[in-house]
Every structure is written in C-alpha cells, then in structure tokens.
Design a protein around this nucleic acid. Structure first.
Ligand SMILES: [Mn+2]
Ligand SMILES: [Mn+2]
Ligand SMILES: [Mn+2]
Ligand SMILES: [Mn+2]
Lengths: 230, 230
DNA sequence: TAATAAAGTTAGACTAATCTAACAATTTTT
DNA sequence: AAAAATTGTTAGATTAGTCTAACTTTATTA
C-alpha cells in the first residue's frame, strides 16, 4: 500500500509530466518546489520510488514515471477531482473551498468508495474547475482548449476551465461573476501592455494577462478550440 | 492540530471511559489492547497527551480524559458514525463494510464537511449499527436499552442496535435476516447452556449467548427498556 | 576552454510513533 | 508479611519523512 507521501509524489509527477505541455521528464528541483520540500528530500524519495518501480531515474538524471507509477498517480488525480465535485455538487462548497479538503480526501483508499461516489455524482466528466476527471480505468480525456489570450478581438468564446486554481484567482472570478460555461467577448486589446477589454454577460471589464492566460475557452458555436470554421 | 494517532487515542478513551458502563478511568494495558499497540507505546503517548492537557494521568496511575480531550474524542466518534451513515445510506455499503473505511475518513478535519454531510443525511440520530451520533456540539444522547439476554420468555422486543460490530457477527445477522427495527420473540430458554430459541419474522432459530448478549433491544410497544408497563 | 552558475547528492541530524527487553511498582494470593 | 502475579515504566533501537550544510556533477557563459 502506498503512503500519503508517496501518493503525493506520484500525483505531482503526473501533473508535471502527464497532462502539462512539454516533456515527460522532470528534474529534482522542479519536483521539490511543486511539493514544497527541499531537493535533498526529493532525491531520497525518488530513490525509494525507483526501488518500487514507480519511476525511472538515475543519479543526476531526469525523473519520469513508469506505467504503474503513472496509473497510480492518475488514480490519485481521479480521487481528488471526484471529491472536489462531490463537495461542490452535494455539499454546496464553492469552487475555491474544494481543493484544500480534496488534498486530504484523495488519500482515502477504497475503490468501492470512489466508484460509488462517481455513480452518485452521475459519472461527471469535469470537476468544478473544468478539469477532466480520469475514469475508473485511469484514462483521462482532455479536450482541446485555448486560453482567452489566444482569442481575437471581436470574437466570442465559451469558458470551459480555469488554469490557475488558486483561491485568490477564483475569488477574483467570483467578483467578476464569471462561471464555467459563461460567454466572453473580446472587445479590445491594448498591444502595449496586453490589457484586454472583455464583456461577460453584458458587463465590461478590463483585465490583465494574468486573467487571459488562465482562462481556458472554446468556440461557443462548435465547441472546438482549433480549426473552427464557424 | 491533532495527528491521526492522537485522535485514535482520544477516541479509544471516549469508548473505554465514556459511553461504556463502569469507571471513568482506564489502565495502560487496557488502552494498549484496544489500540493494538504495546503498553510501552501507550505510556509514551499518554505523557504527550498529558502535556497537551487532553488526559489526567500520573505515573503508575489510571488515565482519564479532561474536558477538552473528551470533546475532541467525541468529535472523532461523530465523524466516524456520520461517515458510516453516509456510506450506508448514500453509497449502498452494507453495515459490515462501513466501519473499516470510516476508521480512515474520521480523521479528515473539516467542520464544514462534516456538518454538510450531517445535513445531506437529514441529521441522523443513529448510525447503521444503531449507535447514537454525537451532535455538532459534541453531545451524545444514548437511549436506555437492554440486551436480548435480559428479555423474558414469551416476551417480544424490537432490535435497536448491535453491540458487537465485527464483520463476522454482522454477517451472521445477515444470514439470519436480522435488521435494525426487527421484532424478536423469545420462545424458549434452556437454563443449562443458555441456548435460546427465538423467532424473527416468523422464522425460528436457536442462538447462543454470543448472540443474545450482543443485540440491544427495547419494548416494541413503548420503546422503553426499563419500567415498561405494557 | 576555463570560470561561474545551476542542479543534484550525501552525510548527519531531528521528530513521531512504534517495538523489545529489562526493570520497577502495585496488587493479589498464599 | 512474604511470594507471586499483574501492571506499568524506562532505555535503546527502528522507520519514514523531513531538514541543513557541505560537496559534486552538469550546464551555461564569457
Ligand atoms: Mn484541486
Ligand atoms: Mn480541480
Ligand atoms: Mn464503526
Ligand atoms: Mn457504527
């Protein structure tokens, strides 16, 4: 059985090498800062994870997940996102309250519990932040999306997810009244400092790249993010 | 914040000194065997709990809970029993599957979560085994009950709780088809070896004291266990 | 290519929770 | 009251996960 800590390492590796763009490998320092521990600690732990065949690694080299490591990490993500959905849908938690608690709940080991939860929630595909939920086989299907910063002036788009899940950002979105599935129209873009004027539900706001780069959107008509001919 | 282990000690102390009959104090050996650790381990831990003012204790003396220790222990029991009820009522777990999982879930710290669960479940008073659930103030109300072994021949009674929560016992009850709220009639008692003939839903069984001493019942008419004049 | 910077490792230490084995105090029995 | 049994404590060891400080390897830059 995996310890909480081992699970956190595997989940972090999935997040850093799995569904993020870029490489399938990661360095000790990056993993350490993701987990808020010192590099020395990671070196130690990675050796143990290698012992158990969850990672590929050699001294001074990069770290990557083995198939079994990736699968286990993916299940932690599944549990995390299902709990977030449960808290949000069944217990009326807001989207900025669910993450912290899910960090604990994700370590409860029971396939029956998690599949029961999945059923209770109606087999949701996305969590309250719009992130895809891995299925009971550990498979995840992430739809193509682009960030709001990639949308042209005068175009409209539909919000499908939030990239930055921090409580600060989510509360800012609440202040703006922005929710998943809302439509945003780009009114104007100031090239000089990238400040963008947008319209959400007929209300107009000026937002910075910190906003536009952290909102995932698709075409409101066809639901695609690429090659949309609408 | 309390560790899992500290919480388990406080819960065990509540169970041994709180709602069981008898003394409000307990010895190191008894606590050790309840927690499946060695007495030496308990001595150590009890010193730490005393440091934090959760127990009263002096060398070679008995252990008892302080008010704050009892309150915290009672909240662990509340969480445990609410989770058991959730698993049973919402996720269709049987009453012999809930305990083990609740042993883990009871350590998730969130007042909001637990009160949300309480509301979702309709503020239940009893868990799937018939045990009283402490309320959000940490108060518990345990109704008077007697064991089936105290019921006279030819009398009927209603099952309100199960004393032995072991999976083995619960599965035996399932085999007999016995559930909370069922009515049992004592048909005959063999004084020699205390074997008892009972009737559950018109079916007759011969059971041993291991059964009759582990089933809590009340009068089917007035719901009382003492001074019933029905 | 040599110097410097960045990234990674090692050694040694700490804490919480546990154990075993030896010992000490208390209680019960004779 | 002495012996025996029970109950509880102490000392020393172990394990997982973490840290700091010193050191080594690899990468970047001049
Ligand atoms: Mn989250
Ligand atoms: Mn999420
Ligand atoms: Mn239980
Ligand atoms: Mn119970």
């Amino acid at each position: 059985m995996l310890s909480f800590t081992e699970e956190n390492y595997l989940k972090a590796l999935v997040q850093l090498t799995g569904f993020e763009v870029g490489s399938k490998e990661v360095g000790v320092n990056k993993l350490a800062s993701k987990l808020n521990v010192k590099p020395a600690t990671v070196t130690d732990m990675v050796k143990r994870l290698k012992e158990k065949s969850f990672v590929n690694y050699k001294k001074y080299g990069k770290i990557s997940l083995t198939d079994s490591g990736e699968k286990l990490g993916m299940f932690v993500v599944r549990r995390h996102r299902l709990w977030e959905t449960f808290l949000h849908d069944q217990l009326d938690f807001s989207w900025n309250e669910v993450h912290e608690l899910a960090e604990d709940l994700e370590h409860i080991h029971s396939e029956k519990l998690i599949n029961g939860l999945d059923k209770l929630l109606g087999y949701p595909s996305f969590d309250p932040h719009g992130d895809a939920i891995p299925n009971s086989k550990g498979e995840i299907f992430i739809p193509f999306r682009k960030t709001l910063s990639e949308v042209e002036v005068n175009e409209s788009c539909r919000v499908v997810a939030v990239k930055d899940n921090s409580s600060d950002f989510l509360q800012y979105l609440d202040k703006l009244g922005l929710k998943i599935n809302d439509t945003i129209k780009i009114i104007q873009l100031e090239e000089f400092d990238s400040l963008t004027t947008i319209k959400i539900n007929d209300k107009q706001f000026v937002v910075s790249p910190k906003f536009t780069e952290n909102i995932y959107v698709v075409c409101p008509t066809c639901g695609k993010a690429k090659n949309c001919t609408c």
